[in-house]
Design a protein around this nucleic acid. Structure first.
Lengths: 126, 126
DNA sequence: CGGAATCCGTTACGATACTG
DNA sequence: CAGTATCGTAACGGATTCCG
């Protein structure tokens, strides 16, 4: 994606734009908290507090921050119920579920290689 | 993966260990630079400088740092040729190539949703 | 050329407190 | 309950320099 080389020609202008957009999105999405939130949501609709309970170790602040980012990119849908106390629900959108599939695979990969990585770490001498 | 709830029973001890190990690995791997390096390597063997040229925007420091981390986790193999000037080559290991497949999918996903995300961003009012 | 170490500004992040 | 704001600290990350 990001590894293309461009000439100075004006025709490349939109290619450059697409490429830097791709990089932006990738940077947004390729981070620990975002991926764990997406994984936690899965096919379900969860409230703010429920996500916080699922994603262990995440702080209130990081959760809101990442949820806003995911919403901005159209990967999660935010539904506010005007009740008191407030109830806010989050759901993955179509594209969000698509991304989730790749995160699933990454989690599977992690599980499959726990042992290999553990022993590799033990062997590793800087 | 990370979303399990444990009781206080001693039998859960190794489950906890595996879980926290999984989290560690996930945190290592789910970051922008690591994934871009893995993507850049692909099936090829590349020298340090070649990777730096492929992964645009990465600094000398971030590259060495992430390569060390990937090596420690057994995802890349590092080969030093004792010449002068030195020549150091990096290749994905088996597990590394496995992870790369999931990164490929994530890159594909990014490309497929460029437009959707772009318009979602335009619409988004905080 | 690749790597380590240094300096230093920027961001990430947690803790806390306050609002509707 | 969810969100915003503020503050302090720790980690990130870039630029630079020196070494094999």
């Amino acid at each position: 994606m990001v590894t293309k080389q461009f000439s100075g020609l004006p025709e490349d202008a939109d290619l450059r734009r697409a490429d830097s957009l791709a990089r932006e999105i990738f940077s947004d999405v390729a981070n620990k908290w975002a991926l764990l939130i997406i994984e936690a949501l899965g096919e379900r609709t969860l409230r703010f507090g429920e996500i916080r309970d699922e994603v262990e170790g995440i702080s209130h602040k990081m959760l809101t921050q990442n949820l806003r980012m995911l919403e901005r990119n159209g990967l999660v849908e935010r539904n506010v119920h005007p009740t008191v106390p407030p109830k806010v629900e989050y759901t993955l959108t179509g594209p969000g579920r698509g991304l989730r599939e790749t995160v699933d695979l990454m989690c599977d990969w992690t599980q499959r290689h726990l042992r290999h990585i553990e022993t590799s770490r033990d062997r590793f001498r800087p």
